[in-house]
Amino acid sequence: MNDYAFTFADVSLVARADGSLWWPEKAILCVSDLHLGKSDRIARRGGTLLPPYETQETLWQLQEAIADTSPKTVICLGDSFDDLGAAMSLPADMQKMIAGLQAGRNWIWIEGNHDPGPVELGGSHLLDYHTQGLVFRHIATAAGCGEISGHYHPKAGVPGLRQVRSFLIDQNRVIMPSFGAYTGGLSAASQPLRDLMLPDGLAILTGSRAIPMPLSALVRPQGARR
């Protein structure tokens, strides 16, 4: 329907329109780069004080995705917290909400570059997670195979229309869009992502529905020469 189903490393996966990845056979739901506590971190680092509502917003979206899929396992693919301090100082009601989401299922926190150490919340903390030939880790590796990662917050769009958060998929890897409420993005046509992805790969645009398009059709953003 609104989601995009595909086969990756002999596994059937679904790129959901909301930016989460669903593995029906194992009932795994994967989300990446939640960046919970971003406003709190900006405040602690001397920036503008932003009200903490974006954490709430991200968790509501996650709650909806979990309600839709009833996963046995939830994998948060790193940068779940904006930094370790943000994880520590999460307001009590948010902590309670996370505990509620975790109840009755496995919960895996993959470590990201923003939140490198274990945090005080429930669930297991892993550097990466291997299962059935797939590996879930935060940052894609050059030699990666059957690799599902996040980190880059890719965005892509049909030429002439605006860019939206997107999955990037080729035969070796899936790079996931960010799931957090206030996170920016990196164009799929920019160099770091071009270097990682095979030219025959796909971008799956998210939003009200998941729309596939070939990576080869992406136009390099103007001014990207440098």
Partner: peptide
């Protein structure tokens, strides 16, 4: 206007691009 019209254009255009690239299914 970012609405159903553009969503439809985006879908149609993406489908055309998939067709052109011979990628109707991966």
């Amino acid at each position: 206007v970012w609405g159903e019209g553009r969503e439809r254009l985006m879908q149609d255009r993406a489908a055309e691009l998939m067709e052109e690239a011979g990628l109707t299914s991966l």
